[in-house]
């Protein structure tokens, strides 16, 4: 037993060294202010996205691609082009989906997962997620900017997600990447690219007949 203890300490110290170092308080404040300012000044976002769902136990992945649009205050449009053409518009609390010329409308409240994802994405763009009391928040340096790790505190959210990683751009503090880690070990990475900030977006973008 005594022989095991030094080995245990060695492993523990190596693990600690391997952990990422938190940002210092000054930089954290800088990130908070940068994200808040970006949220204030961002009226619209248009960009491409690539979504990769990793299914750990299935040893497989599902890749989706498309275009993403945001307009202040709460309008989102996810235009999937791969693996199939599919359109999701979330305006306030109403979700509209167009697939194969069929348009379905429902309240986001009838689909809890949709509600949560919508809250996380809108909260990331609008910066409110950094002050959301339903998450514990920690800040880390990342290659192209800053990583904010959110761990859900509310039992309802913890049932689905273990953590959320948001990568903010160092220059404009917009979201570069979002990682959603699920309880079952699967995770989804959404990469945003070719971002156009405050390009004109007509209201019709968020209306589907």
């Amino acid at each position: 037993m005594l022989k095991i203890i030094p080995f245990f300490f060695l492993i523990s110290s190596l693990t600690l060294q391997a952990q990422q170092k938190n940002l210092d308080a000054v930089t954290i404040q800088l990130v908070r202010e940068g994200v808040a300012l970006a949220a204030q000044t961002t009226q619209t976002i248009s960009c491409d996205f690539t979504q990769q769902k990793e299914m750990s136990m299935l040893k497989d992945q599902i890749i989706s691609r498309g275009k993403f649009f945001f307009k202040k205050e709460q309008s989102l449009r996810w235009e999937y082009t791969y693996p199939f053409s599919y359109l999701i518009v979330i305006h306030n609390d109403e979700v509209t989906i167009r697939s194969d010329d069929n348009v379905t409308k429902f309240s986001a409240q009838t689909n809890k997962v949709f509600t949560e994802i919508n809250r996380i994405i809108l909260g990331s763009i609008r910066g409110t997620i950094l002050n959301d009391s339903s998450f514990s928040t920690s800040f880390y340096p990342a290659n192209t900017g800053y990583l904010v790790k959110l761990v859900p505190l509310s039992p309802g959210l913890r049932e689905n997600l273990t953590k959320i990683m948001i990568f903010f751009n160092r220059t404009d503090f917009t979201v570069d990447k979002l990682e959603l880690y699920e309880q079952a070990g699967d995770y989804t990475i959404i990469d945003f690219s070719e971002k156009k900030i405050n390009a004109p977006l007509p209201d019709q973008t968020f209306l589907l007949d």
Partner: peptide
């Protein structure tokens, strides 16, 4: 294995169909 996820990749359920039973690996709590 039968996995149903929403468009954003979040899993609703992950099931395992065996010769004589269905195993629930994960499911969205509701």
């Amino acid at each position: 294995r039968i996995l149903f996820s929403n468009e954003f990749g979040m899993t609703y359920f992950d099931l395992e169909l065996k010769p004589d039973s269905l195993g629930v690996i994960y499911c969205f709590e509701p």
